[in-house]
Amino acid sequence: MDVALEVSGVSHTFVAQGNGTPVRALDGIDFRLAPGEFFSVIGPSGCGKSTLLEIVAGLTRPTEGRVVFDGRDVLGEVPDGVGMVFQEDASFPWLSVWDNVAFGLRRRGTDAAEIARRVDYALRFVGLADFAKHHPRQLSGGMRQRVCIARTLVLEPRLILLDEPFGALDQQTRLVMGEELLRLWRETGATVLLITHGLDEAAMLSDRIGVMSARPGRFIATLATGWPRDRDSQVVNDPRFGALTGEMWTHLRAESMRSIGI
């Protein structure tokens, strides 16, 4: 099997700010993604999902274990070909929407015509073509998140890391954005690693779903959805959708209770 991303034996312990006690965030995470696979990680809040994504991105070094992307070790630096969309709004308030999206391409020295072509395409893709000249503060939280998604997509990453990118959006917009993400994933052939706390989101979007335990996070189950590649949000009507969310919840119920201290 071809491997786009391999995470093996990743554990992470950090020192809590304030009292200085070590906190074990992740405990022996192993998984492999095939090129073009859509993999979601779901888990209770505080289970280390975001830490896992930052480790995969090379933003955080794990205390143990390895991450290999495209056959190379990820060592404290974001590898070429990896794009990341953060949970928080990371748009640059001093730049217009258009300049935000063009930002990464300009730093790479891409020529102006190519930048214009890609930025216009990406803005149409996320439905912000009419807002190109606006500044982020003039947009809603959801629209700003779409700016960040476009800013990452124009760089045409081979591995897209998404940290609860639709968390700020309402349920209906999330379904539509999810559909758009699927379209993008099909068109680009990129590998996607999505962190989410939405059972429906994971069930609808993914090829496979890794279910994480409460902290310290480890995989307690990996589910294959078996959806066709050209799926869309209509899969919510499929009986298999209900079965998948039910199965996830069976695994997560006790963990979620544990994470909020019940």
Partner: peptide, 24 residues
Amino acid sequence: VVRKAARAMRLTPAQTMRTVLLPA
């Protein structure tokens, strides 16, 4: 997250200073 975004776009330290930290 703004600094992380700069790192995720693989900016050099000089680029980060000039195009992200100073304007921010």
